[in-house]
């Protein structure tokens, strides 16, 4: 297990180093009357969408791990959930920063209250609340935060539907299947890079938590002597 880390780090580094060259060479999305600046702004899409995908993946991992912790009382699941929750917040931050940068160019505003933006922001808030309660909740906060993750997962479809009916202008999911052939390869390369990075960070973070638990146990043992 331990021997996998170095190759994985090197792989992730190489993939992220290669990505800019690959996507500079990719053809541009065809937008009517687009200025070069707008066309360039579409390149952010290669970072924005994979980050969003990884964010949702991480939220899913956190929710499932939290449910396992609640019902089976497995401490390892709780540690995995805590690691995943932090990654939701990190990748969510990338999504929430790159999104407005692009929107300013393409839509002319920094923020729009549409379904996908709002649900992403809310999902991010739910996991911020998860981390807050874990940090400041005191005794027994692990269970509280696990409940927050499970409820947050169940909440996603409701947020999406309710905001969707409320209003929508985000480019729809149809963008990805209709990508030009030259773009598709680059796009999935970026997705893969982010997934490798996510897996690496998740494993490292969960291992750190595991080490912390070990230290606590050693303190307890030392105390017993």
């Amino acid at each position: 297990m331990k021997s996998c880390y170095l190759p994985a780090v090197l792989l992730a580094m190489a993939m992220f180093a290669v990505a800019p060259f690959r996507l500079m060479g990719a053809p541009d999305i065809l937008v009517a009357n687009a200025t070069p600046g707008v066309l360039l702004s579409y390149k952010i899409f290669y970072y924005h969408v994979p980050s969003a995908m990884v964010m949702f993946l991480s939220a899913f991992v956190c929710g499932v791990a939290s449910a396992v912790y609640l019902f089976k009382n497995r401490l390892a699941a709780d540690r995995l959930a805590a690691a995943a929750a932090e990654l939701v917040v990190v990748f969510g931050l990338i999504v929430l920063v790159t999104g407005p940068i692009w929107a300013r160019k393409a839509w002319g505003v920094w923020w729009q209250w549409d379904a996908r933006l709002t649900s992403t922001l809310l999902l991010w808030m739910i996991f911020m609340a998860y981390l807050l309660v874990r940090r400041f909740g005191g005794q027994g906060a692990e269970k509280l935060s696990a409940a927050m993750a499970v409820f947050g997962m169940a909440n996603v479809p409701f947020v999406y539907v309710s905001v969707n009916i409320w209003r929508t202008i985000h480019p729809t999911t149809q963008v990805i299947p209709t990508l030009a052939p030259g773009m598709r390869g680059v796009f999935w390369f970026c997705v893969l890079s982010f997934v490798v990075l996510f897996g690496l960070l998740l494993a490292l973070r969960a291992r750190l938590e595991q080490r912390r638990a070990d230290v606590e146990r050693l303190y307890l043992l030392a105390d017993e002597e």
């Binding site: 005794q139 606590e216 307890l220 105390d223």
Partner: peptide, 11 residues
Amino acid sequence: RNYGRRRALTR
């Protein structure tokens, strides 16, 4: 029974 690092009961 321990609360984090603090032992309340030992064996």
